[in-house]
Amino acid sequence: MSTFFAKSLAVKLKQNKQSLKLGMLALLLLSSAPLMADSQNKAVWYRYYDQHGVANISSNVTPNHIRHGYEALDRNMQVIQRARPYNTEMDIKKAPQRAAQAYQMESDQRLKKAYTNSQTAITKRNNALAHIKKQIIFQQEQLKQLQNDRITFKRQEMEYLRKVKPVPAQLKTNLDNNLKNIELKKDMIQSLQTSYRNTQAEYDRIITRLKALE
Rank of each mutant, 00 (worst) to 15 (best):
N174Y: 00
L192P: 05
G69F: 01
N76I: 09
P63K: 03
D176R: 01
L22A: 15
A169E: 08
I92G: 07
N198G: 08
K17F: 11
A169Q: 03
N178D: 01
A37F: 10
K17S: 13
R205N: 11
R197Y: 01
I57L: 12
Q101F: 07
I206C: 02
M105Q: 14
I57G: 11
D149N: 06
I206P: 11
N198D: 09
Q109V: 02
D149E: 04
I151Q: 12
Q140G: 10
R150K: 11
M77H: 08
I137H: 14
V61W: 11
K124Y: 15
Y46R: 02
I132W: 00
I207N: 06
I151A: 08
I182M: 00
T173G: 00
L30K: 04
A10M: 06
I80N: 07
L20Q: 12
N174A: 02
K21V: 13
D149W: 01
F153P: 05
T208C: 04
Q200R: 12
K133M: 08
I122G: 07
A95G: 03
L129D: 03
D149I: 00
S118A: 04
T194C: 07
K134L: 11
I151D: 02
R155Y: 02
G69N: 03
H131C: 15
D204A: 01
L179T: 01
L143A: 12
P168Y: 10
A128D: 14
L25Y: 15
R110N: 05
T152P: 04
M1H: 06
Q104P: 10
Q81M: 09
E141Y: 10
Q200L: 00
D149H: 00
Q78V: 10
R82Q: 05
A99N: 09
P34Y: 07
I122H: 07
Q51K: 14
N76W: 08
S2Y: 09
A43T: 03
E202C: 06
M188A: 03
A6C: 09
L210N: 00
L27M: 13
I189W: 13
I92Y: 13
N56Q: 08
